[in-house]
Design a protein around this nucleic acid. Structure first.
Lengths: 115, 115
DNA sequence: GTATTATACCTTTCAGTTCGAGGTATGAGG
DNA sequence: CCTCATACCTCGAACTGAAAGGTATAATAC
């Protein structure tokens, strides 16, 4: 950890991948399309983003992989580990705190003086 | 400029600064502290972030500056221009769309099929 | 009178993330 | 047979934001 100085807004791809894997086991190519579809193309992470995230996550023990042949296709399915669950919780809370703080400023209207 | 490849999550400092200036004219040092205070220290942008943002914004015509002496202090006050207002609208909408999309995935629970 | 702190501005350097492009391989359909 | 969609992967470029350091002045403390 002690990630040096991570920008306060980062780690969203990681968050999305972990969340999707919480629902079911998925493979990389599938995750790429799921993100596009579930966000209505608002967020579109390419394979160049998703695959490295998966590898980092696996290296850190947050997910595990298993190669399977499905209909002649070779896919690598990823599953969330307990470590991944707590990491997901962590990131979700962080995301919540940050968006809340930003919202605070957006709504605050310049009259900071609230109780 | 042509967007090159801006990460979909960037531009939050710019958004916050514009929003604060919508309320009243402010100077850099003041903005740094205001962000810290209004977000309860959740978001803390240093001077090394805020000043460059102000300069970029001014170069782009989104804000205008005016040097004033206040109680022996020399401060540079910034004010939002019409261009800055529309930029603020733009960024606010983008922010809203993105956080909405992320929320969609976070809540979606894997059963994408909604009406 | 001088030293320290808080105000107020600024820039440069560094590191991390994300993006895009490119590269390999196989099964299915024309 | 050739092309397209599936499915995996990596490297290089680019941008952002963080930290640290640098200047100057007013107010306070000693």
């Amino acid at each position: 950890m002690a990630t040096t100085n991570p920008s306060f807004m980062n780690g969203v791809p990681e968050l999305l991948v972990l969340r999707l894997l919480q629902g079911r086991e998925m493979y990389g190519y599938e995750i790429v399309q799921a993100i596009r579809e579930e966000t209505g193309d608002v967020v579109s992470l390419g394979e160049g983003v998703v695959y490295p995230v998966l590898h980092t996550l696996e290296r850190g023990g947050a997910i595990s992989s298993e190669r399977r042949a499905v209909g002649g296709r070779s896919r690598i399915y990823y599953a969330l580990s307990p470590k991944g669950v707590s990491r997901l919780t962590e990131l979700t809370e962080l995301w919540s705190r940050i968006t809340g703080a930003v919202q605070q400023v957006l709504v605050g209207g310049g009259h900071a003086g609230l109780v």
